[in-house]
Amino acid sequence: MSSLPIKASDSSPIIKSGSHLSRASSVIAFARREFRDAISSRWFLLYTVAFTVLAVAVSFMSLAGSGSHGFAGFGRTTAGLLNLIMLVVPLMALIAGAGSIAGERERGTLLYLLAQPISRTELLLGKYIGLAIALCCSMCVGFGLSAGVLAWRVGGVGISAFVMLVVFTCGLALAMLSVGILLSVISRRSGVATGLGLFVWLILVFLSDLGLMAGTILFKLRVQEVFVIGVMNPLQAFKMAVIVNMNASLDVLGPVGMYASQTFGGALPWILALVIGVWTIVPLVIALILFSKRGSV
């Protein structure tokens, strides 16, 4: 086959070494490979099935008492779904991310991948995008069926809030995936990465909130302090974002929620989205820097 001339402007040593492909297409190729790997992984399928079954069950159960009249089924369903999402989605994304690089490294396939004519950055980005699409698709199945239950039982109440629930859940998954990939980059072994992922999950889901609860009681933290410390946790930011989209205010979350609503008003959803965005971008950038600097595989 013919070989195309190498662009002089291309500075990547790997690409210079013989490839004629653009960076984007190699990222896409890796993303596709990662996606296929993910959806054929048993763990991933298990999480997807678990999330879907639980989401549908929560939708059914929270509407069980509502009878034929379709009021506000969404609010209850969301309240039920929130707990489920905050437990399952971070776990799913952290574990998926943690397994990505460390798994390849342990199996020895990472060397093989790096032998391909692409940069380390592209490899990691490709993996991230592939896993991100896989996660979002997996959650769309759960949400789609859950929305189907709502449509069947109560009609289209609160559809815009449900759309935002899906969007923010995908955002949460992307953030947790970033953290997972960072853990994967710094771990030599897959087991270590997964263990770290579980530990981070435990911290974000339970320990930080419980710690802040204790702190609030012991040190009589003021509302500003509780809000600022609380919102640093991407799970709390996610929860507040969903509730603020549903109720247009955070007053259901008591004094701290009222403080947030009154202080930030219409900017609050954006601030919360920003928190999730920072949790997505910062770990991913650190992972990219570390991964491209590390000599060892």
Binding site: F35, G70, F71, C136, C140, G144, L145, G148, G156, V163
Partner: peptide
């Protein structure tokens, strides 16, 4: 009298499922 239109929610549900299946097919 409560409840919104059923159609948008059905559409939304179907849309999510189509995205997940079709998106998965295209990418994978």
């Amino acid at each position: 009298t409560q409840g919104g239109g059923r159609f948008p929610m059905v559409g939304f549900s179907a849309g999510l499922l189509v995205i997940s299946v079709f998106g998965g097919w295209v990418v994978g």
